[in-house]
Design a protein around this nucleic acid. Structure first.
Lengths: 143, 143
DNA sequence: TAAGATTGAATGTTCAATCTTT
DNA sequence: AAAGATTGAACATTCAATCTTA
């Protein structure tokens, strides 16, 4: 076994996978993969809203990075900022109706692409195993 | 099972892993992770040399990206360009003695860090399984 | 003092166009 | 024509500093 090689392989495969799935999303839905991730996080969060900070931690961006990403999505009309009444330092981010519509369209395409690249190549048991192994690697970050 | 979620988890874990290992390399050896990858590719290739193009494909960079990355490593004295006598379009990249020394130092640190984050958390069998699953996902890119 | 968010400067990458050699 | 490498422009990100509110 070569752990360094395994890590290299993990990085290589994941980068390739992200690139392909990102390309698919971009070409079919004109939606960058990062934007898709933001919309998905919002959709899955309670009350369908998150603070800028939590969103940044969720997608592994620095505060500066997430601020500007949200800027661009606001300009594109996919999300909106909302003041938080109880703590005026924080900004809520909420999807617009248009943003939610774009997500649901993108989700159809994306599920198909993920199926093609992952599900069709792995059994259910293998998928579960993969998830378990990933969880062991970064236990503190896994739900 | 949620394939989209699995992909998200894969991306999340790998990004986190790369960030931590990259940080470790940077702090202990003052060597960016990408530079380490280049030096490792060169060290493991026959004749210890690769063309700019193959190197770019190996680390998943565009031709413009790899050209500039090698530029910076040349300035830092870790690699050198060498003309190819048989085809004057191609440039060989070879590590300098200093580059090889830096790699061997970095490798010690990196192996330790990979052990801590991966090997210590996974059995040999699990490591093999992980590698196998990754291979199934992108068969055409796996040696 | 600290936390959340934003801004300016710098960085490393992609994309498209270009140059040289085959 | 096509392949290998490089260049200019654009872009998204990080880092460090800053502003506002708690």
């Amino acid at each position: 076994m070569d752990p360094v090689g395994t890590f290299g392989q993990l990085l290589y495969t994941t980068t390739l996978l992200e690139r392909r799935l990102g390309r698919g999303l971009e070409e079919s839905c004109d939606l960058p993969h990062t934007w898709f991730e933001i919309l998905l996080h919002l959709e899955r969060s309670p009350d369908r809203r998150m603070t800028i900070g939590d969103l940044g931690r969720g997608v592994l961006l620095t505060s500066g990075g997430i601020t500007r990403l949200i800027d661009r999505m606001v300009v594109a009309g996919l999300v909106a900022r909302e003041a938080c009444p109880s703590d005026r330092r924080v900004q809520w981010v909420v999807p617009t109706p248009s943003g939610r519509k774009r997500l649901s369209e993108a989700l159809k395409v994306h599920v198909g692409n993920v199926d093609e690249l992952i599900t069709n190549r792995l059994s259910d048991a293998e998928l579960r195993t993969l998830l378990t192994l990933l969880g062991k690697i970064t236990p503190e970050f896994t739900e």
